[in-house]
C-alpha cells in the first residue's frame, strides 16, 4: 500500500514539476495554459490519490477524494476561462519562425 501511494506521490510530483518547467520555458500565454491545465491536473490528481491510498479507507481519504473531484473539475474550467478571456481581449498567439510568411 505504501509502495503504491509513494509511487503515485512521486509521479504526481513529476507532473507538477514538468508543469512548472513548462510555465517557465514556453513562449506565450496560450502555450503556458497547456502546461498548467494538463500537467497540473494530472499531477495534483495523482498526489491527492496517493495521499488517499496512504490514508486508507477513512473519513479523511473520503474528504481527499472530494477535493480530488473538485480539482479535476475546477482546473480545466479555470484553464478554459483564462484562455477565453485572453482570446477575447485580443492577445495574439505566438507562432514559430517557420510559419511566418
Amino acid at each position: 500500500m505504501s509502495v503504491l501511494s509513494g509511487t503515485m506521490l512521486a509521479l504526481g510530483f513529476g507532473f507538477v514539476f514538468a508543469g512548472v518547467i513548462g510555465i517557465l520555458r514556453l513562449p506565450d500565454f496560450y502555450c503556458r495554459l497547456h502546461a498548467m491545465g494538463k500537467c497540473d491536473t494530472l499531477g495534483v490528481a495523482l498526489m491527492l490519490g496517493g495521499l488517499a491510498v496512504h490514508e486508507g479507507a477513512s473519513l479523511t481519504s473520503f474528504k481527499i477524494l472530494l477535493v480530488l473531484l473538485f480539482v479535476s473539475l475546477a482546473n480545466p474550467t479555470a484553464t478554459h476561462a483564462l484562455g477565453r478571456a485572453a482570446i477575447r481581449a485580443g492577445l495574439v498567439p505566438w507562432r514559430s519562425d517557420k510559419q511566418q510568411p
Binding site: G19, P27, H34, C39, T41, G43
Partner: peptide, 22 residues
C-alpha cells in the same frame, strides 16, 4: 488525460522545445 500530460511533459522537458503552436 494521462497521454496529454505525458506529451506536454515530454515537449516541455525536451531540450529543443519542439512546439509549433497554432
Amino acid at each position: 488525460v494521462a497521454v496529454a500530460s505525458l506529451r506536454v511533459a515530454w515537449v516541455v522537458l525536451h531540450p529543443r522545445l519542439p512546439i509549433d503552436p497554432r
